[in-house]
Design a protein around this nucleic acid. Structure first.
Lengths: 345, 345
DNA sequence: TTGTAAGCGTTATCAA
DNA sequence: TTGATAACGCTTACAA
């Protein structure tokens, strides 16, 4: 907002025309003489005119801005999603306002409020780990605000959800471990209130069942893990407490899996000979560690892009909110690397 | 922007008061009766009134929004910086509009334009690798737009730059390698047009000189590396083409260093026994790979936070642009890990 | 082909 | 203690 930014009025004054004429000339409205158009555009150029998007927003009750609420920016998967959001928003002429909640529900709510104040056209949300009650979202939906959830999605009416096929990803990962001859597979599961955690746990359980392997409750360990250290600690405890030593770990995320790997190594177990390990997310470092970590690829960029497309389509009324009664599900892909490739025979 | 959002006018109508009275009552202006204030606030609450930030922006010519232009979101260091920006902006009541340039100058310019249109209060910029001419920034500075550069900073008059002490970081890293007995140290340097690349190369060179080790031009290899694969290829070529085999690699970033490590391993060289390796940035994976990678820690979060504080102070006129004739420099810290700890004696 | 006036939501100024 | 009015920059009926 610079003092001296030229406005339509300035151009009007310069040319002895009215503001409305300038406005129309600039947008090639019919019924403006070619000559006037030319003059106006020249002067606009010369004066370095730039439309004031704020004034436009006020006038049109549209800000061409979407608000993104995300737990953490410093997170490989989420940053990938943001990148996808960015791309689509940019190409369709929208701005992105970003806030991270740091997994705090208070911050989530307050972000929603500032965004509402800022008249954003729609929301993209992946909620915090603390969020167990979705009232604040339901209210928005009721009031008719366009809102698309991604990755961490709520189970509430009329929510538009974009997610990865966590169930299938977990199922594939577990089946793969079984196919490599691992039998006593531990699942380091995620926070209970996240649907993705349930789905992954369900995929794990079903894979075991379908292969005739008993599901042991003591093999499912919750770890709200964000760091490898946490995963390492948990695994260490398991290795020294479980009477029957596990021979594989399926992590709810790559951090947990790396932690498990470190703990196993320390415990004198060889990966993948003695213990197989598979993670979830396929972070960059999977191929850089030794042994390289097998992991379930989550299409983060595609998710961000898809979610944004849907949101913008709703905002622009190209599609209707009611067209979505089931979530949009993106496929995962199991990336098999050395941590789970047991050398047979 | 929802149909039905209550405005000051709605409250005024409801209470048979004027809009100005409502406005004043809501902000506890003096000269409004306590009774009126109370009534107004009650009704505002009831009607779920929310000030329209857009209208405010128009009125005040201030948007309380800062624009962040960054090469890539999916990048550990930059995402850390964004996080720092986010924190400070949020705590001081500012919004963050984010765009990534994907290292394209065209996108950089067009982002600046939309941000200008959106009347942002100031810019935070880390420019693209393609950017060699800083005209578009100089113009902004001349016009008086608050703008703070971070990490990748330009060498232009009146620019406010926040950076890491790349020189010292590189000097420390190189000295450390020397102290561990490595002598033939290769530097995988960064893109030429980035000042940080120069500084790191300079730190490397000076460290060699000060330890009486000759600087060999063929040991400084430019690698605009973003991926380990690229770093690996370059290192492979070096290992098979250089007559005198290097015994250490100092990477301009961690990706390059990991690439070098992979190449060395493939070449049958042991790390750190035969070859020492140090990276730059201290990405998360440094401690997860085998051997763990020594690296120079860059305080990304602190950089984002500091840069934002300065920007907001300028915007709020707490400090003057002219107070900064030299860059703000943040300290690095060498994290010594196994990739460069040679076992002596 | 162009101009006038009203309005988007808010607040500062002046008047009552 | 409160109200009327104008203005921020732009668009759009409606009028000319």
């Amino acid at each position: 907002m610079k003092i001296g930014q030229a406005t339509i009025k300035d151009i009007a004054r310069e040319l002895n025309l009215s503001a409305s004429t300038i406005s129309r000339a600039l947008k090639d409205y019919p019924g403006i003489s070619e000559e006037t158009k030319k003059k106006v555009k020249e002067v606009a150029e010369k004066m370095n005119y730039r439309p004031n998007a704020i004034a436009l927003s006020l006038r049109k009750s549209r800000s061409f801005t979407i608000g993104v609420i995300i737990p953490e920016v410093v997170h490989f998967f989420f940053s990938t999603v943001i990148s996808g959001i960015e791309e689509v928003a940019f190409s369709r002429g929208y701005n992105v306002i970003l806030t991270q909640t740091n997994e705090k529900i208070e911050r989530e709510k307050s972000s929603i409020n500032t965004m509402l104040s800022n008249q954003i056209d729609g929301f993209m949300v992946s909620f915090s780990k603390e969020t167990e009650d979705f009232e604040h979202f339901s209210k928005l939906i009721e009031q008719g605000y366009p809102i698309v959830f991604f990755d961490r999605v709520p189970d509430i009416p009329h929510a538009i959800n974009v997610m990865v096929d966590d169930y299938q990803g977990a199922y594939d990962a577990t089946s793969h471990l079984i196919s490599q001859g691992y039998q006593k597979i531990v699942h380091l599961s995620g926070p209970k209130n996240l649907k993705i955690s349930h789905e992954r746990a369900r995929g794990y359980t079903d894979a075991l069942k379908n292969h005739g392997i008993p599901v042991r409750p003591e093999y499912i360990v919750e770890s709200a893990v964000g760091t490898p250290d946490e995963g390492k600690e948990i695994t260490k405890k398991l290795l020294s407490s479980l009477p029957d030593l596990p021979d594989a770990f399926f992590g709810n995320n790559d951090m947990a899996a790396v932690g498990a790997m470190l703990a196993c190594k320390e415990h004198g177990l060889r990966v993948p000979e003695d213990v197989g390990i598979v993670g979830f997310s396929n972070w960059q470092f999977c191929s850089m560690i030794d042994p390289s970590l097998s992991s379930v690829f989550q299409p983060g960029f595609a998710m961000g892009a898809k979610a944004t497309e849907v949101l913008l389509d709703i905002i622009e009324k190209k599609i209707d909110v009611d067209d979505f009664n089931s979530p949009i599900v993106l496929e995962t892909e199991l990336m098999v690397r050395n941590s789970s490739k047991r050398i047979f025979k």
